[in-house]
Amino acid sequence: MEYQYPFSYDWTTQEIIDVIKFFEAVETVYEKGMNRDEFMTFYRRFKEIVPSKAEEKKYCNEFADSSGYSPYHVVKKMKESNPGDFVKMES
């Protein structure tokens, strides 16, 4: 798929890389599945960069609109799963 990852020009290069890693982790959960703990590490870093719920919703909706993958549903499913679980989303 061809799409762009949402980001802010206010972020540092490392923050942009870390946010992209989070969105790539969302893709991986849909395409192959991922360990819950590994995913939550990416999500916690994303939340350090984007602490506001409103901003989180904005960036996640932009990503979902362009990619078809819902970060919201992945995070919700991960939070409901147990530590150490392997989670794969149904498309």
Rank of each mutant, 00 (worst) to 15 (best):
M1T: 07
Y5W: 15
Y5I: 14
Y5V: 10
Y5C: 02
P6T: 07
P6Q: 07
S8Q: 12
D10H: 11
D10E: 15
T13W: 14
T13P: 06
T13S: 12
Q14W: 12
Q14E: 15
E15D: 15
E15W: 13
I16Y: 04
I16K: 12
D18L: 08
D18M: 08
V19N: 03
V19W: 04
F23A: 01
F23K: 03
E24M: 13
A25V: 06
A25S: 13
A25E: 04
V26I: 11
E27P: 05
E27V: 07
T28D: 06
T28R: 09
V29D: 00
V29S: 04
Y30V: 02
K32C: 07
K32G: 04
K32R: 14
N35I: 00
R36G: 00
R36V: 00
D37M: 09
E38F: 08
E38Q: 12
E38H: 09
E38I: 13
M40N: 02
T41G: 10
Y43E: 07
Y43F: 14
Y43V: 03
R45T: 15
F46E: 01
E48W: 14
I49W: 09
I49K: 08
I49F: 12
V50Q: 05
S52A: 13
S52N: 13
K53C: 11
A54I: 08
A54G: 04
A54M: 11
K57Y: 11
K57E: 14
K58I: 06
K58S: 07
Y59E: 04
C60L: 06
N61V: 03
N61E: 15
E62K: 09
F63S: 01
F63H: 05
A64H: 07
D65E: 15
D65R: 10
S66Y: 03
S67C: 09
G68A: 06
Y69C: 02
S70E: 09
P71H: 07
H73T: 00
V74K: 00
V75T: 02
V75S: 00
K76R: 15
K76H: 11
M78P: 01
M78F: 05
E80T: 07
E80D: 10
S81C: 06
N82G: 03
N82F: 13
P83I: 06
P83V: 07
G84F: 12
F86E: 00
F86A: 01
V87S: 01
M89C: 05
M89V: 02
E90I: 04
S91A: 11
S91G: 10
S91D: 13
S91V: 09
